[in-house]
């Protein structure tokens, strides 16, 4: 097992370098430069000043040299400084947005699992019934409906007309003067709409996955055997079927790990949530190369680690894989 792990970890290094190499060249291929924010159509900007700025950011060097310099820095876990006018370290910028992104995504993921697994199982147990059809339609409406549109409708209803919930942002005016409990309450209120929407949109995938996995399992011979030896149906479904059907969910969990630090731009913009999606989008629009590369690298590492964890989890849960 340990040699296996070690091998897998070693294999990750060239993959990671490959990912960063491709990302680095692709973002540099896109037209535009970080200096454009200051320089585009600004009549005060002379060509000399422009050159000076480019030199300042190290953009005058050939691109492969820029990549090597970046790689050297990243090997020391230094993401460098942002190219936006604030010049703050990339890690600081990522760090201040990570907690809220992880919080929202984790809560949403938990919510999705709590709702999606029962929906999937119950509709698999009674396939093609009216219940199955209704849940299918409902989860697919959630999947298909444009989030920004539904978000605006809910904001108008709960925020403007009923005044029940805050519309956007993470805290109210006067948040500082609230008690600890009041602060949590304030946060909760702000998170209800975004969480509900994110969960509604994510239900379809997980519940359908659960449904098909369950359908697959109930058809297996050992389920027939279990029934044949007279086990209670609840035991058949809960103990034998569900546990086996949940195996692919481990893979899903592993694949969700990089998603925890990513965020949807539309979603975060609509609710004014200062998350990773916004940071990445702004960085791309400004051609803020160090920030883009920082986020991509972290994403790539988490994807690879998530894959590995999924494989390990699978091996731990399923004896058939372990022995192989």
């Amino acid at each position: 097992m340990i040699t296996y792990l070690f091998k897998r970890l070693l294999e990750m290094i060239p993959t990671l370098v490959g990912i960063t190499l491709i990302s680095f060249f692709i973002i540099h291929l896109a037209p535009g430069k970080p200096t454009d924010v200051l320089a585009d159509l600004n009549p005060k900007m002379t060509p000399e000043a422009r050159e000076r700025l480019e030199k300042y950011y190290g953009l005058d060097k050939p691109i492969h040299i820029q990549y090597v310099l970046w790689l050297k820095r990243i090997a020391k876990l230094d993401f460098g400084d942002s190219f936006s006018t604030d010049r703050r370290p990339v890690w600081t910028k990522i760090k201040e947005r990570l907690p809220i992104t992880i919080l929202i995504n984790t809560l949403a993921l938990v919510l999705i699992f709590i709702i999606a697994i029962p929906i999937g199982v119950s509709s698999a147990v009674r396939p093609y019934s009216l219940y199955d059809k209704i849940t299918t339609v409902v989860v697919f409406i959630g999947f298909a409906i444009p989030t920004f549109w539904l978000a605006l409708l809910l904001m108008i209803l709960f925020g403007v007309n009923l005044h029940w919930l805050p519309i956007s942002g993470l805290k109210s005016m006067g948040y500082e003067n609230l008690s600890a409990l009041g602060k949590i309450w304030d946060w909760t209120q702000h998170l209800i709409l975004p969480m509900t929407l994110e969960a509604f949109g994510g239900l379809a995938g997980y519940s359908r996955y659960m449904r098909s996995s369950m359908l697959e399992v109930v058809r297996q011979d050992y389920i027939t055997t279990a029934r044949a030896k007279g086990l209670a149906e609840s035991k058949v479904i809960y103990k034998h079927a569900l546990r086996n059907a949940l195996l692919p969910v481990i893979t899903l969990l592993g694949m969700s790990i990089p998603g925890l630090i990513g965020g949807s731009v539309i979603f975060e913009n609509i609710f004014s949530i200062p998350g990773m999606g916004q940071l990445f989008y702004q960085a791309v629009m400004m051609r803020d190369y160090p920030v883009i590369m920082g986020i991509l690298t972290i994403g790539a590492v988490l994807t690879l680690v998530g894959n590995l964890l999924a494989d390990i989890g699978y091996a731990l849960a399923d004896p058939r894989i372990r022995t192989r």
């Binding site: 108008i156 403007v160 005044h163 956007s168 942002g169 005016m173 609509i270 004014s272 200062p274």
Partner: peptide
């Protein structure tokens, strides 16, 4: 004076309407 950042113009208009 509070300078509140609301990246989406539609959301901002709703915040105005709600008096925020």
């Amino acid at each position: 004076y509070v300078y509140r950042i609301i990246p989406d113009p539609a959301t901002m208009f709703l915040e105005l309407k709600a008096g925020n």
